[in-house]
């Protein structure tokens, strides 16, 4: 092989490495796992799942993020359905509090193993 052949070989491998790097970087940005809180259909806030946090939603509900999962731990409503729901951490899982019109949606790269109906 001539010198230019080696240069071409190196250039292509370098280009492949660059594209791969861009892809990894892009993926890291786009697929940040988070819990999106909607109040009355409007976005209240978005919280990353990889940081533990305690979020008070309008003073009526208490959402805790722990172990890459979101869990509603307190609500001021009488039925407490959202509090009794199990923690949500997989993509598409939701926690709903109807009296306070709160929906917590999980956006995650980790897909749920069972479909949302069986949840």
């Amino acid at each position: 092989m001539r010198r230019n052949d080696w240069i071409w070989l190196g250039a292509v491998l370098a280009a492949a490495a660059v594209f791969w790097g861009i892809y990894i970087w892009h993926q890291g940005n786009a697929e940040a796992d988070c819990a999106v809180v909607l109040v009355d259909g409007e976005e209240y806030g978005s919280y990353p799942l990889n940081e533990d946090a305690e979020i008070s939603i309008n003073g009526t509900n208490e959402l805790v993020i722990r172990n890459h999962e979101a869990d509603m731990v307190a609500a001021d409503c009488p039925d407490q359905i959202c509090v009794n729901q199990r923690p949500a951490g997989k993509n598409g899982e939701t926690i709903v509090c109807l009296p306070n019109k709160i929906v917590v949606e999980i956006h995650s790269s980790e897909e749920a193993e069972v479909d949302s109906v069986a949840n």
């Binding site: 092989m1 070989l9 492949a16």
Partner: peptide, 17 residues
């Protein structure tokens, strides 16, 4: 689809050689 580019670049240069 461009995410597939690095794989095909490397395979192209190797099979080409």
């Amino acid at each position: 689809v461009a995410y597939y580019l690095p794989v095909l670049l490397v395979s192209g240069v190797v099979t080409g050689a």
